[in-house]
Every structure is written in structure tokens, then in C-alpha cells.
């Protein structure tokens, strides 16, 4: 079970009184920091995904679509057909 700050009560229970405010202070900085980090990470992820999708679309559009394969090979035309 965790308190509203996200820490285990067991951790607070054994702590001295001068420690609790410090823990709260740490939590007050860590949680918003974690949220901001998560948002930033998510934004970064979205940017990375969007860039990858854009690159794939560009590559697909620019790809040279070749005519279908036909079985056969080229050989030197050593003899000309006379009409």
C-alpha cells in the first residue's frame, strides 16, 4: 500500500520526524518531475513515430516501381534476320 505521495507507509513508519518533511519535499519535486518526464518522453515518442511514418511515406512515394518481371534473358543477336 502506498500513500498519496506514492511511497510505502513502511518507509515513513520507521523514519524520524526530521526525515518525513525531507521525504515530502523530495516527493513534491520527484512526482511533478516524473509527470513532466513522462509527458516529455511521450511527446518525444510521438515525434519519433511521426518522423518514422513520414520517412516511410516519402520512401514509398519515391520508390521506383518497376514493371513486372518477365522470364527470359537477353542474348547477342549474332544473326540478323533477312527479310
Amino acid at each position: 500500500m502506498r500513500d498519496s505521495a506514492g511511497f510505502s507507509p513502511d518507509f515513513a513508519r520507521g523514519a524520524s520526524s526530521d526525515v518525513r518533511p525531507r521525504t515530502t519535499t523530495i516527493a513534491a519535486f520527484v512526482i511533478p518531475g516524473a509527470i513532466v518526464g513522462w509527458v516529455r518522453q511521450r511527446t518525444l515518442g510521438l515525434v519519433v513515430v511521426a518522423a518514422a511514418v513520414a520517412a516511410a511515406v516519402v520512401a514509398l512515394l519515391g520508390r521506383r516501381v518497376q514493371p513486372p518481371e518477365v522470364s527470359g534473358t537477353w542474348h547477342p543477336a549474332t544473326q540478323r534476320r533477312r527479310p
Binding site: V70, S71, G72, T73, W74, P76, A77, R80
Partner: peptide, 14 residues
């Protein structure tokens, strides 16, 4: 143009 060295290829289907 053949005398000048143009080489002609012929396609043969497999």
C-alpha cells in the same frame, strides 16, 4: 550503324 559497332541484343523467353 551495325558496321560502326552497334551491338543488338535479342530477348529469348525461358
Amino acid at each position: 550503324v551495325l558496321g560502326l559497332g552497334l551491338e543488338v541484343a535479342e530477348w529469348r523467353s525461358d
